[in-house]
Amino acid sequence: MVRLNINGREQEVDVDSETPLLWVLRDTLGLTGTKYGCGIAQCGACTVHLEGNAVRSCMLAAGAVEGKKIVTIEGLSPDGSHPVQRAWLEAEVPQCGYCQIGMMMAAAALLRGRPKPSDAEIDEAITNICRCGTYIRIREAIHLAASKA
């Protein structure tokens, strides 16, 4: 049993405490917005917020995040109204969309700490992989979200 606080809700989850948070979210809790891409914290498709910071959930044991506040894309906003989501929609960022959840979670965490990030700060913070090649619009949408916040 692991006690997790996900999207504002405390819950007991019947998993081995060594299970990576990613698989608890996806398979045990059905929160499939968070994606698997590499399993070695390289690609960022599994990015969630842990106490407001962007973390890669594929190598994070569930037992290690007990009692900490976890937010997934399903909890970022109830209706897609987070400035990052609105900016992503306006700039039509996603192509296949698979990596974009992690991208948006990383961007939302960046903007919490840096409400008006420079290009250089975006470069340093957004290290997720997009295979469709949407990087130009990701940068544009982060600036757009910064202007909306």
């Binding site: 996806r26 059905g30 994606k35 894309i73 989501q85 992503w88 039509e92």
Partner: peptide
């Protein structure tokens, strides 16, 4: 024209193969 699939994609709602249950 705006693409039909974007609004759901920014919500994390589309079901990819990996998401089927």
């Amino acid at each position: 024209q705006p693409r039909f699939d974007i609004a759901d994609k920014v919500m994390g709602r589309p079901v990819y193969g990996i998401d089927v249950r």
